[in-house]
Design a protein around this nucleic acid. Structure first.
Lengths: 99, 99
DNA sequence: AATCTACATCGGAATTTCCCGATATACCTG
DNA sequence: CAGGTATATCGGGAAATTCCGATGTAGATT
C-alpha cells in the first residue's frame, strides 16, 4: 500500500464523498437494486449524485480502485463499485502506526 | 480541520518523512540541542536530512504548519518545528469516523 | 554600520491534477 | 445486424503542485 498514492486519492472532495457514501449504499443510493451490499453501486448512480461528467466520475472510480480502496464487479452493461473494507482497515492501521 | 487540505499535505514523500522524523527528534536529529522535545528541530537540521533546497524545506514546513500538524517556535535566528500531537489525534479520530 | 547566519518569500519552469467533450468499447434488445 | 445504454479511454485546457534559484528579512557578531 503506497501511502503517498493513497493520500493523493483522498485529496479530493468528490472522491472523499464517494467513499463516504459507499459506507452505507442503501442509505445514499436508494434507487439502486437489492444487491447493493453485495456488488455495490453502479457508475451512473454515483454520477447522478455528483455534479461532474460521466468521464470524470469513471476516472475517479478507477483511480480509487487502483489504490485498492474500492473494488468493481461488472454485471451486464453495469460496473458496480463497493468499498474494500479490508483495505480501509490496513490504511487505518498504517496511519495509526506511521503517522 | 479541512480533510482535503490535510490529505494534500500528506501526499508527499518528503513531508511524510519529516512528520515521521519529528515523532522521535532525539533519534533522528542527534545534533540538535537539548531542548529538542520542547521546541522541536530547526529548519536547517531538517534540510540536511532531506535532499532538497532550503527554500523548499521552509515552504514544506509552513505548509504543514498551516494544516496544524506542526507548530513553530522562533528562538533567536532559528525556527524550531515540532509535531502537534493533539492535531494528529484529531486527524486519526476523523479518519476513524469518516473514512 | 557591516557582515554573517537562519529562515521566509518571490518568480518561475516543469510536472501533475482536475475536469471536460469526444470517441471507443462492451453489452443488451429488437 | 442496427441502435441504444453504460462505462472506459483519449486529448487537452486550466489550475495546482513541485521544487528551484534569487532575493528579502530578522537576529547575532564584530
Amino acid at each position: 500500500m503506497d501511502q503517498v498514492e493513497v493520500f493523493k486519492a483522498l485529496s479530493n472532495k468528490t472522491r472523499l464523498l464517494i467513499l463516504q457514501w459507499l459506507k452505507d449504499p442503501e442509505l445514499h443510493f436508494p434507487d439502486q437494486g437489492r444487491c447493493v451490499l453485495e456488488v455495490g453501486v453502479c457508475v451512473g448512480e454515483i454520477q447522478r449524485k455528483v455534479n461532474l461528467t460521466q468521464s470524470t466520475v469513471s476516472e475517479y472510480l478507477s483511480l480509487l480502485q487502483r489504490t485498492g480502496l474500492i473494488e468493481s464487479t461488472r454485471i451486464g452493461q453495469w460496473t458496480y463499485y463497493k468499498r474494500n473494507e479490508e483495505a480501509f482497515r490496513e490504511l487505518k492501521n498504517l496511519i495509526d502506526k506511521e503517522l
